[in-house]
Write a protein that binds this DNA or RNA. Structure first.
Lengths: 332, 332
DNA sequence: CTGTTAGCGCCTTCAC
DNA sequence: GTGAAGGCGCTAACAG
């Protein structure tokens, strides 16, 4: 628990000034070969490493990319994996930060985290599922699954409309006609687009969208419970449900079971995302896969390009229907 | 891309000194109610947040817990999830950092990361799978799945021996007698213990451990390929393999398939960890579950206690055999 | 080639 | 109740 050595300790031990140590460490010239070697030797002996904090404060660059999230949930973690692999071999380190929101704060976690880390600790940031994208920031930012469409900052997102349409068409092709939709967080663009895809598929099949079948689910299990119950207590309940993401799809199945309905026999359910637990839930979840790792890699590519002066880009990745065991032909 | 507001900007806008702003923000006394309110108003208008870097440099505490990893792989990510949930409701933020090791560095990533972040950016650190545990650090540390047993710093680990024995006993109970072991990274304690559990199970069943059946796998898919081939080209190849973790178990299955062997018909395989993809691999992997999320939570508990002056603890979590589809009765 | 000086943004004495 | 000065560890200018 003893104090880490500082540059001052090194300087004292080596019998030179801190400036000389700094120069030697950073391979700047103006240091004799002998001194250089001597300093490095002392550095090794003391196990000195420059403080990221002090360095970042003095210097502009830190060679650290920040991944800013509200919470380390499966979606963000998968993405982080992609970011991390994409940064292998580059000089950049990865720093993932989950900022807590104080109750009173209405600025949003992304503003806060960005302000706390940006301009000092990180050279650029990848914002995961931001509710509000800061218009201006002190560092380049890329928003993944942003709240809004491609207007301002760089974005990486999946083809939500196509994916949702594919999910709904799958249900239609199984003979379902009364298909419910457990909507996502309506303040996010992704939720709006998934609803849009759902509507398009219905319309194309000549099925009128019944407003009673569209209920808010909010992307989280806890927030979807009430909606799931509501769908199943309708006078004419749906035989299939397209949930806006996997977590609420799994909750939908759980609620159905609680009410004596077996999936997929009595109720077919499709999710969205394909997070790891989709494959291990019972029954295994039919869902729309987001290429999360590839999206992380794309975000890195866009961000690095911006760090070199490039323009913000807007990337759309394809979504892919993954048919597993939570969907079956409609009961007759 | 404009500069973030600093405390100086706030002071100027509010018509007070930076000292007053600092006091108002941190709720120190010596500020009139009126000034306090006025400053907070300006802060809100400007969207000011104190720089984590500058604050941490001046103050000791940052209320940030660091999770230091070599790489964001599934094991670390699951653990991170546990850490993150355990820190909900506490005043601590989570900062996960993956430091790259420069080729020349033989200090190990944990020393480097700890030295760069410790004492400045983070109040305490959770080291995930460190190869070498720093004897002294400027902040309290907890090592998860450390390279060495409970001697110095606090540790959290799973019952590796018991888990490995259960895995091997499972294979024996299915009638297997020639059971290979794809060993882990031998510099890590977990690998040594898993080998030990494997040996104990064999011995208890009266089966002599054949040295030819124990081959290094190194915990990573790429490092296990050669060993997997080697096991299968033995004159008298095994009918079952206990791999030291899931990634190498999956690689074992892949290599077997490449050589025309079907799992579990021709070769049974057991892994260790139960990372998410174990449940979605084909066939689904029989493995030993580490309660990674709970381990993350334990690590937090131990660390927080140390931050309040508590003693380092050594926690051992139970491992649990999860039987899926990659194991079957031995071919006759 | 080396050391001294200044200051990054912030917080904490200590005057006023 | 408020402001001025110093310093956390480090690096970039400038002197010597």
């Amino acid at each position: 628990m003893n104090r880490r050595p500082t540059i001052t300790d090194v300087a004292r031990a080596a019998g030179v000034s801190v400036a000389t140590v700094s120069k030697a460490i950073n391979d700047r010239d103006g240091v004799s070969a002998a001194t250089h070697a001597h300093v490095l030797k002392v550095v090794a002996e003391l196990g000195y490493e420059s403080s990221l904090v002090a360095t970042s404060m003095r210097r502009g660059r830190t060679n650290v990319i920040g991944v800013l999230v509200a919470e380390f949930e499966p979606f963000a973690l998968q993405l982080l994996q992609g970011v991390s692999t994409a940064l292998q071999g580059t000089p950049y380190d990865v720093l993932a930060y989950a900022g807590t929101v104080s109750a009173g704060d209405h600025l949003g976690w992304e503003r806060r985290s960005l302000s706390r880390l940006g301009g000092t600790l990180i050279d650029g940031a990848i914002l995961v599922t931001p509710t509000t994208t800061p218009a201006h920031s002190s560092v380049p930012i890329v928003a993944v699954d942003p709240h809004t469409g491609p207007d301002g900052p760089a974005t990486v997102a999946v083809q939500n409309i196509d994916g949702a349409r594919a999910a709904t068409e799958h249900l239609i092709s199984l003979g379902h006609r009364r298909i419910g939709h457990l909507r996502g967080r309506t303040d996010l663009e992704s939720a709006q687009q998934r609803e849009e895809g759902y509507r398009q598929a219905l319309e194309a099949a000549g099925i009128r969208a019944d407003p009673a079948l569209i209920i808010d689910g909010g992307y989280r299990a806890a927030s979807a419970t009430a909606g799931a119950h509501a769908l199943l207590t309708l006078p004419d309940p749906p035989t299939a449900v397209f949930a806006a993401n996997d977590l609420t799809a799994i909750e939908m199945i759980r609620v159905a079971a609680e009410r004596g309905l077996t999936t997929p026999r009595d109720l077919s359910v499709v999710g969205f995302d394909d997070v790891p637990q989709a494959a291990s839930s019972v029954p295994q979840l039919t869902t729309v896969r987001q290429p999360l790792i590839e999206m992380g890699e794309s975000a890195v590519r866009v961000l690095l390009s911006m760090l070199e002066g490039g323009e913000p880009e807007h990337v759309r990745m394809p979504a892919e229907l993954v048919v597993r065991s939570s969907t079956a032909v409609a009961p007759t």
